[in-house]
Design a protein around this nucleic acid. Structure first.
Length: 424
DNA sequence: TCTGGGGTCCTAGGACCC
DNA sequence: TCTGGGGTCCTAGGACCC
């Protein structure tokens, strides 16, 4: 058996922790750059605020309904997320928790007596809520995909289910499948859903009755095949181990305004490279390839890949050192940049990742490498313990006029001393 | 005027090797 | 005049997730 534990309106719930007067009131949280609405409290949903809609278009509606609006505060959400996951680990054991995203985790429950599952579900919910203050929903079923469906049922009828739903027997999940539309299945996106509906397959139940070979041919090969098995209650997507090493690392951001100056683009790309390099060192990897891309205003509506605006280079040797990554990154900006072009977004992608310990050296790398690495880890430690850019490379700029907008961000209550909540 | 960011997995097809 | 076949690795692109 598998469980999924999912935080309800996670970002909104985090904001409410320090603003209890917002409980039972409508709240929304915006994406980076205050672009879209990415989290809504139940009250905001009830007022008709859509998911993923642009902030500027909803602004009037938000004001009219006196809805509280926050920019995203990832320092806060990341810290609260860790506490939620630690609570789950303390109940089912570290090896049975797969952190699936910032606000949800799959749990492996094969060692638990099925009779104890309802009690466990309640204990999970109550413990997380008591220890962290974040409300959660729990779904339990034989496979991950069915657990997701159970969780959706729990969330859809919070009063009726108490945010807990279990699908432990065949009849119970058959019933649930009949009530679930194909486009609501985990693993079925827009394109597969359209395809299925065109074929007259509208419910999860109908999909589960299709032959595996058919799914293999029509739903993305083994992915589709696994999906059918999962819907039948045969677990085919296993729990992933913690600490899997990422195979590529990217940092991309919109700018707060259009950027036309080469010098500003270089600052931004140097800043993103610094962030990506920190992520790289955190998992003890080194990169052997770096790619940079700039997105201009004009091509924004043309979705996808534009070779003109992407350049990549193979590094002479894999590295995790920020300055060895910034240099080639900036050269790539020079190659891509077109004078007179207005850019709205840039990104850095590190790939060809290898373990940092066993880097294939080359003729030209000298003994300074070891010293540089000690320097980097000192910088990381300082920045980590202060939770800020205590020490940084001058190439990343000082003023950062291009930085994204975050006009409505709440204080970083749990990660910055100077922003600690005061209670009098 | 303003529409996020960061990932994963899988497949097809080309390059290359023996 | 005749010109194989199987395997591996890499990359681009499509699909999906939160």
């Amino acid at each position: 058996m598998k469980a999924i534990v999912d935080c309800n309106s996670f970002y909104c719930s985090c904001e409410r922790l320090f603003r209890p007067e917002l409980n039972n009131r409508p709240v929304v949280v915006l994406s980076n750059n205050d672009g879209c609405i990415i989290s809504r409290s139940d009250e905001a949903k009830a007022l008709g605020i859509g998911m993923g809609g642009p902030f500027f278009m909803a602004r009037h509606q938000l004001e009219k309904n006196n809805i509280s609006v926050f920019s995203s505060n990832y320092h806060l959400y990341g810290d609260i997320s860790m506490r939620v996951m630690d609570s789950l680990r303390s109940i089912v054991g570290e090896k049975n928790v797969e952190v699936y995203s910032v606000d949800e985790a799959f749990l492996g429950l094969d060692e638990i007596d099925p009779h104890e599952l309802p009690g466990l579900a309640h204990r999970l919910k109550e413990t997380v809520e008591t220890w962290t203050g974040i409300p959660v929903s729990v779904g339990i079923a034989p496979s991950k995909t069915l657990a997701k469906i159970a969780n959706n049922i729990a969330k859809k009828d919070k009063q009726g289910t108490g945010c807990i739903h279990l699908l432990l027997t065949d009849p119970s999940f058959h019933q649930a499948l009949k009530k679930t539309r194909v486009d609501a299945i985990w693993g079925v996106g827009r394109s597969f859903a359209n395809k299925l509906i065109d074929l007259g397959i509208t419910s999860a139940w109908e999909l589960s009755q299709m032959p595996e070979e058919w799914a293999c041919r029509n739903l993305g090969g083994v992915v589709g095949q696994r999906l059918i098995l999962e819907l039948k209650g045969k677990p085919s997507i296993s729990l992933k181990k913690e600490l899997e090493i990422k195979k590529m690392i990217t940092t991309t951001r919109m700018f707060g305004r259009q950027v036309t100056e080469l010098s500003e683009l270089k600052e931004a790309v140097a800043t993103y490279t610094t962030l990506a390099a920190e992520k790289l060192r955190r998992q003890n990897s080194a990169a052997s390839q770096i790619q940079v891309f700039l997105v201009s205003r004009e091509e924004d509506h043309l979705a996808g890949y534009h070779p003109d605006n992407h350049q990549s280079t193979n590094l002479p040797a894999a590295t995790s050192l920020t300055h060895e990554l910034i240099r080639p990154a900036i050269r790539l900006v020079d190659q891509i940049f077109k004078s007179g072009q207005a850019y709205k977004k840039a990104g850095v992608l590190l790939s060809g990742l290898v373990p940092d310990g066993s880097i294939q050296g080359n003729f030209f790398s000298g003994p300074s490498q070891a010293r540089d690495r000690r320097l980097m880890s000192a910088v990381d430690n300082l920045n980590y313990s202060m939770r800020s850019e205590m020490v940084k490379f001058s190439a990343t700029g000082i003023k950062k006029d291009w930085k994204m907008r975050q006009e409505l961000r709440s204080p970083r209550h749990t990660t910055r001393w100077e922003e600690l909540k005061e209670v009098s």
